[in-house]
Structure formats: structure tokens, C-alpha cells
Amino acid sequence: MIRRVFLVLAAFATLTFQAWSAEVGEDGLHKQDWFALTFRDVAEDIETAREEGKRLVMIFEQRGCIYCAQMHEKLLADPEVADFIKSRFKVVQYNMFGDEEVTDLDGEVLTEKTAARKWGYVFTPTLMFLPEEAPEGMTAAEAAVATMPGAFGKWTFLNMFKWVDEKGYEGEEHFQKYHARIINELRAAGRLESE
């Protein structure tokens, strides 16, 4: 009887884990069904996002990245985080060591891995937030309005998306000050469990 109960609990735990964990693709990267599949032409992706009333964010990941897995299984599995991002951003995933073709804003055709090198990205996950319109004569990295290298807690992660959505990069309030203000507001409202 104890063994049967254990097997039922183990099966339930497995199903529960599968229900909230992100799918892993053949490339070894975790996938969200709401990530956009594009031809990775950065200017075109910026324009498509703008037409949809969204902003483009590119996420660099790599196979076996524990921080990428945490981002998918904790942050992007959180409805508050995922719903905000899905409603305001078009997300395109890049494999830091991938061979898929990428067209930079300056017109140069690269692979995902040569784009990562050209743009100076060495950590995964790295999120690159692009402007509302594609500028001419710049690389994607030069045009980025913000970059988030590495994995962070829920509020740092979500607040970066909110800061970009509110165009905080155009104002005087640096992201760190914005983030501290939001954290204080969450504490005052009794909503902050942990950062």
C-alpha cells in the first residue's frame, strides 16, 4: 500500500513538473510557445513588433545553461511576468552558439554565434531590448536601448521590461533607481515576498 501511494505521488509530481516546466527543443534551449519564430532579420523584427504594438527583445541562450532554465521555469512560468511580456514585447530567441542566419541592422549577414561575438555577448541569458524603430547605420548592439546580462530575481527581471516599456531609458531615472522605487512601493503594498 505504501509503495502504491509513493508511485501515485511520484507520478503526480512528474506530471506537475511537466506542466510548468518549459519544453526543451532539439537545440537544447528551453522554449516558450509564445516566443516569435522569425527569419532573424533584426530590422524586420523591429518593424513587425511595432506593427503589433510591441517592442522587440532578443534573448541569447545556450544549451545546458542553468540560468536560462531558471528564467524559463521560474520567471517566464510566473503568470504576472509572462502576461506582461507577452502583451508588450515580441520575443525572439537566439542560440549563442547557433548557426541560424541573422541579418544585423547594418545589413551584415551573420550566424547566431557570430552575431553574439560581434555584439559582445558572453553571458546567457542575455536580453537585448531594441528601439521602437530600426535606426540606420548601427548594429543591433549599438541600437539597443537596454541590455540585461544574466539571470535575476522576479522583480529585477520584470522591472527591466516595465522600465523599457515606459521608455525609462529616455528619462533621468536610471534603471537601478526605478527598480529601487518599485521595490519600495511593493513593500509598502505588502506585495514583496522576496527579490
Rank of each mutant, 00 (worst) to 15 (best):
R4L: 14
V5M: 10
F6S: 09
V8K: 01
A11Y: 01
A11N: 00
T14V: 13
L15Y: 06
T16F: 15
T16C: 08
Q18H: 07
A19N: 06
W20M: 14
W20H: 14
W20Y: 14
A22I: 05
G28M: 02
L29E: 00
K31F: 00
F35W: 15
F35N: 11
L37N: 11
T38V: 07
T38D: 09
F39C: 03
F39I: 10
D41T: 06
V42M: 09
A43M: 06
A43T: 03
E44Y: 01
I46D: 12
I46W: 12
A49W: 06
R50D: 10
E52A: 12
L56W: 09
V57F: 07
C65G: 00
I66Y: 07
H72E: 10
H72P: 04
K74S: 12
K74A: 08
L76V: 00
L76W: 10
P79V: 09
V81L: 00
V81A: 07
A82L: 02
A82H: 04
I85T: 09
I85H: 02
I85Y: 00
V92D: 05
V92C: 02
N95T: 09
M96E: 05
F97A: 11
G98T: 10
T103S: 03
D104F: 07
G107M: 08
G107C: 02
V109S: 06
E112D: 10
K113G: 01
K113L: 04
T114W: 01
G120P: 09
V122Q: 08
T124E: 10
L127I: 06
L130K: 06
E132M: 08
E133F: 05
A134T: 06
E136W: 00
E136I: 01
T139H: 08
A143I: 03
T147K: 13
P149S: 12
P149E: 13
F161Y: 15
K167Q: 13
G168C: 04
E170R: 12
H174N: 08
R181S: 13
I182E: 15
N184K: 15
N184H: 10
E185Q: 15
L186A: 14
R191K: 15
L192W: 08
L192Y: 11
